Simulated scan of single mutants.
Amino acid sequence: MQLYNKLSAKERAALIDEAGKDRITISFYQYHQIKNPQIFRDKLFLEWNLLDVLGRTYVSYEGINAQISVPSENFLDLKEQLDSISFLKGIRLNVAIEHDNKSFLKLKVKVRNKIVADGLNDETFDVTNKGVHLNAKEFNKMLANPDTVCVDMRNHYESEIGHFDGAVTPDVDTFRDSLDIIEEDLKDHKEDKNLLMYCTGGIRCEKASAYYKHRGFKNVFQLEGGIIEYTRQVKEEGLENKFLGKNFVFDHRRAEKISEDVIANCHQCGKPCDTHTNCANEACHLLFIQCDECSEKMENTCSTDCQEIIHLSYEEQKELRKGKGNSNKIFKKGRSEKLKFKN
């Protein structure tokens, strides 16, 4: 019985090319009390593996968070499989704006303590006691309300390349960091302001809205389905798009273009650019923004030090990494003293 992925990314990419089938990238989440996450995890892996599902999914006692891709011809079978699970029946599936058959190259279903790493030890609030969900039209209307404070619940490297017009974008590395900052900034307006939140697909806002209600905020709202669903509704209903730039996504595509606005800059030369890349030095792997010219000049590295390292032999690079843990730069995405134009 196969319960784990056995193919490398390279092998899977070759199989996708060989199959020649279009794939759909989707995401969904659901907060729900799961009694035995490991059994549920194994069930999902077995069933999804048969449907050629790829992607990254987290299962915990508090629910499920999935970003996956599936061959178009298997989409209805996947939906039927999800509908057979009571708490996922009729679940909204956020379909990607831009498709890429190689958005994911492995199937990973992992058991985690939480489906959203929040760093909270407060078990007294009910995560299902969430704020009011708004569709795209309702969101635009509330965004225009002068008594509304709109907050981006994503991290700095996400909001840097795209965010809603007028939104507060906390300069944070983690979701947990933003919770305290927002509460402190709005502590005197818990009753007289509308707290309007958004994120990529809605999962972070769902938890944040419950948390802020628990902390005494009276008017808490969130964008249902996040930026992904907002964009779909804007296109289908002909609504005014209030999102500027790109939506950062956690797969090989890295981002989806929502508007033609380029609101970020190359971290190395400062010219307008919103293309993320990872440093070619495997010991660094820093996520940062790099334009085509700098990519060519720097050979897809973040610094001259890393550029020198990639020209060493594999054995020499391996020797340099020996005995060292992953660089902090990996986890401080887009933050390095060597990135001159990082805002």
Rank of each mutant, 00 (worst) to 15 (best):
Q2R: 15
Y4D: 15
L7F: 15
K10A: 13
K10H: 10
K10P: 00
E11N: 08
A13M: 06
D17G: 04
D22Y: 09
R23C: 08
S27P: 09
S27D: 11
Q30G: 06
I34K: 06
L44D: 03
F45H: 06
F45G: 07
L50S: 13
G55Y: 08
R56Y: 05
R56Q: 14
T57V: 14
V59K: 08
V59L: 12
V59M: 07
G63C: 08
G63V: 09
I64M: 05
I64Q: 08
N65W: 05
N65M: 09
Q67D: 07
N74Q: 10
F75W: 09
L76F: 11
L78N: 04
L78W: 07
S84F: 02
K89M: 04
K89W: 03
I91Q: 07
V95T: 14
V95L: 14
A96E: 11
I97Q: 15
D100F: 12
F104Y: 15
F104D: 05
L105R: 09
K106Y: 09
L107P: 06
L107I: 11
V109L: 09
V111M: 09
N113Q: 13
N113Y: 10
V116Q: 05
A117L: 06
A117N: 10
G119T: 04
N129Y: 12
K130A: 15
V132A: 15
L134H: 13
N135A: 13
K141R: 14
L143M: 15
D147S: 14
D147M: 12
D152W: 06
H156M: 01
H156E: 03
Y157A: 02
Y157I: 00
I161R: 04
D165H: 11
D165W: 12
P170L: 01
V172C: 03
F175K: 05
F175V: 02
R176I: 00
D177N: 02
S178V: 07
K187S: 07
D192G: 03
D192E: 09
N194V: 11
C199V: 11
T200F: 10
G201M: 08
K207P: 10
Y211S: 06
Y212D: 05
G216T: 05
G216C: 09
F217V: 10
F217L: 08
V220E: 12
G225C: 14
I228V: 15
Y230V: 12
R232K: 15
V234S: 10
V234G: 13
E236A: 15
E237G: 07
L239Y: 13
E240Y: 08
K242G: 07
L244Y: 04
L244F: 02
K246L: 04
N247M: 09
A255W: 13
A255F: 11
E260L: 06
V262M: 04
N265Q: 09
C266I: 02
D274N: 14
A280N: 02
A283C: 02
C284Y: 00
L286C: 01
F288G: 01
F288W: 01
I289E: 03
I289G: 03
C291T: 05
C294F: 01
E296P: 00
K297E: 11
K297Q: 12
E299M: 02
T301I: 03
Q307R: 08
S313F: 00
Y314W: 00
E315M: 02
K318C: 00
E319N: 05
L320Y: 01
K322S: 06
K329Q: 02
I330G: 00
F331M: 02
K333H: 00
S336R: 00
K338F: 04
K340V: 10
N343I: 04
